[in-house]
Design a binder for these strands. Structure first.
Lengths: 330, 330
DNA sequence: CTGAAAGCGCTTACAG
DNA sequence: CTGAAAGCGCTTACAG
C-alpha cells in the first residue's frame, strides 16, 4: 500500500541506496540517475517516512516545548502562544517540528523533560521559565542534552538563553517617573522566586538608588502570579500604608487588578504600568502603559539558538537580549 | 552508550523478544522472568526508544494540531491556547503526544496536513477551524486519515467533531433581550465564510423570527476577524444607520471594539455581548457580558474522540456539543 | 558514481 | 512461556 524507497528504486531501475542518496541530495550522484529517481518519486508520489529516517539518523528533528506549571493562571496571557508562534516561525523554516507538553507543576515538568529526552522523542528542549535553582535546567545540563531557556537562568555562561533586559526596562521606567516628579512609586510583582521578578525589582531598586531615593519595602508587594488577583491584593496592601502616585507592575493583568481596586476605592488617577503590551491593557479605562517584551521574538531567537546548536553551527552568541519597548498611553 | 533492549536482555539472561514482551505487558510471560527483566530495566535505567517503537508498530502516538491561518490577528484570543491545553489534558493521560504547526493561510494549512500525514509523523490530526467547503477536511477524508474538527464541519455524519451549539447560544441571548424590551438588536460577526459565524447569525435570525421581528440586514455587519477592528468598523457602520439598544458580537474582542467606538462617540449605554468570556471583556468599563464557550472542554473532547478512534474503540458519539454559558455582567 | 549489506532499536508471527 | 528470525523504512561505510 504505502510506497517505500524500494518501490521507487524498482521504478527507477536503481538500488534503494541510490534513491536515498538522491533524497539527501548527495553530490556523488550523476545528473542522469538523479533525474530518473526524481521522476519515479513523482510518479509514485513517494514521501519518505519520517520515523524510519529518524531511526536511521538518530535524529528526530523535533523540538520539545515545556509549558510551565503556573500556566493555568496565566493562560489569559498571550505570552505563551506568542512564544510558541515565534519558535514555530524559525523552526519550520529550518525543517524542525514542534512538540509541546503542559506541565501542571515543577514535578510534572521534570517528568516530561525526562520522557522527551530519555525516550528519544526530541532533539532539543525549550524551557519557558527559569526559576532560581531550577531542577529542570540542572537535569538537562547533567544529561548534556541540548536546550534553550526563555528567561534568565542562573548560569548564564554555558546555557543557551533568550531574554529581555528586564532590569534595564524597569530602571528606565522608574527613572523617568522620578524625573517627572513622582516620589512614591509602588512595585507589584509576581512570585519573587522567579528570576524575571527579581530582575524587574532590581531595576526598580537601582533607579531609586541612582536618584537618591531610599528603597522602602512598604512600597513593594510580591504576589503569586501574573494575574489580576495579585494586582488587587497588592494595591490593597500598598495603598493602605502609603499614598502612591505611580505603580509599576510586572504584568498587564496585575495592572488591570490594580486599576480595578483603584477605581472601586476612589484611588484613581495613578500612573499605572504593566508588562507585555496586551490587548487587555490597551483597552482599559484609562489605558495602561506597558512594556512590550516582544514574545514572538523571544521565541524566534530561542528556536534559532537551539537549532544552530543542533546543527553543530558555530555560534558566538550563546544568548540574545530582545529589546523591550515602553508603550506609553494616555 | 545508549542502553537498548539487547543490554537489558543480556543483563536479565533472556532474549530481546522477552524484554519487549515485558514492556508491552504481554500476558504470556511468567511472573518470574517478568520480575528479572524489570529488575534489569531498573538497574540499567533502560528507556525504550520511542522512534524504534513507532517504526515497528507503524504508530507514532502523536496527534498533530494545525493552528489556523487567521490566528495572527487572533493570538490575543486565549481560545487557541485553551484548546491546546484541553487536548493535552486528555492526550497525555492516554499516552499520546502533541505536535503543532502554525499555518499562515489555508494553503499553508494544507501543506502541513500533507506533511504530517504522508510522512507518517502523526496518527491523527486536529483541525481548529472549519470553513464551508474546507479543502483540508476534504483532503483528510479522501485520504481516509483520522482527524477531528473543533467547530462544525459541513458533513456532520462521518466526521468527528466537537462544537458548541452556537445557534442556540445566540438564540437564547437574543430571545431574552427581546423579551426584556430590546427592539433593535445589532449583530457584528467575523468572516461569514466561517461556519461558526453562520451558526451564530442563524440563532440571531431565528430568535427574531420566533418573536415576530423582521430580520433587517442593516443591523448586521460581517467583519474580517475576531478582533477589535471588526468591532469598531461594525459599530461605525451599523450605528450610522440605526439606533440600537443592544449589540450581539461573536467575540469579546469585537465587543471591546464596539465599546471603544461607542465610548468615543457618545453612544454608550448599550447592552453589549461577546463570546469567549475572556479576561479582557471582564475588565472592560462597563464589563461586557459574554458567552463562555469552554474552550478547554472543546479541546478535551476533541482529543477524546480522536484517540478513541485511533485505539479502535467503538464510539456511539461521533461528536460532542459542549455547553455554553451566558455570563451576564453589570 | 552505484550497489549489497549491515544497522538504527524495537515488535511479532512462527516454532517449539 | 520463550527464542530466533524477519521486518518496520530508512541511511551509510565499504567495496568496486
Amino acid at each position: 500500500m504505502k510506497v517505500t524507497i524500494r518501490d521507487v528504486a524498482k521504478e527507477a531501475g536503481v538500488s534503494p541506496s541510490t534513491v536515498s542518496r538522491v533524497l539527501s541530495n548527495n553530490e556523488r550522484i550523476s545528473q542522469e540517475t538523479k533525474q530518473k529517481v526524481k521522476e519515479a518519486i513523482k510518479k509514485l508520489n513517494f514521501k519518505p517516512n519520517a520515523i524510519a529516517r529518524s531511526l536511521a539518523n538518530n535524529k528526530t528533528h523535533i523540538l520539545g516545548i515545556i509549558l510551565p506549571n503556573e500556566i493555568e493562571n496565566t493562560f489569559a496571557n498571550p505570552f505563551f502562544i506568542q512564544v510558541m508562534q515565534g519558535i514555530s516561525l524559525y523552526a519550520t523554516q529550518h525543517h524542525y517540528y514542534l512538540m509541546y507538553a503542559v506541565a501542571k507543576d515543577k514535578k510534572d515538568e521534570l517528568k516530561y523533560v525526562k520522557d522527551f529526552t530519555l525516550n528519544g522523542r526530541v532533539d532539543g528542549i525549550v524551557i519557558l521559565k527559569a526559576e532560581s535553582q531550577d531542577h529542570t535546567i540542572e537535569l538537562l545540563k547533567e544529561m548534556n542534552f541540548p536546550f534553550v531557556v526563555i528567561g534568565h537562568p542562573e548560569d548564564t555562561d554555558t546555557t543557551l538563553w533568550v531574554d529581555n533586559d528586564n532590569e534595564s526596562a524597569t530602571y528606565q521606567v522608574v527613572d523617568e517617573l522620578i524625573k517627572s516628579g513622582h516620589k512614591h512609586i509602588g512595585f507589584i510583582g509576581a512570585k519573587i522566586d522567579w528570576v524575571v521578578s527579581k530582575d524587574r525589582l532590581e531595576g526598580y531598586k537601582k533607579a531609586l538608588r541612582d536618584n537618591q531615593i531610599v528603597y522602602d519595602e512598604a512600597l513593594v508587594y510580591h504576589g503569586t502570579g501574573f494575574d489580576e488577583r495579585t494586582g488587587e491584593e497588592g494595591a490593597k496592601v500598598l495603598l493602605s500604608k502609603k499614598e502612591l502616585t505611580a505603580i509599576l507592575t510586572t504584568d498587564d493583568l496585575i495592572a488591570v487588578g490594580v486599576n480595578l481596586y483603584c477605581n472601586e476605592n476612589g484611588k484613581d488617577g495613578k500612573v499605572l504600568i504593566g508588562f507585555n503590551n496586551t490587548v487587555i491593557g490597551q483597552y482599559q479605562n484609562p489605558p495602561i502603559s506597558s512594556i512590550d517584551i516582544q514574545a514572538v521574538k523571544l521565541g524566534w531567537y530561542a528556536s534559532k539558538l537551539l537549532i544552530n546548536q543542533l546543527e553543530g553551527k558555530e555560534q558566538k552568541n550563546k544568548h540574545y537580549i530582545v529589546e523591550t519597548e515602553w508603550i506609553k498611553r494616555k
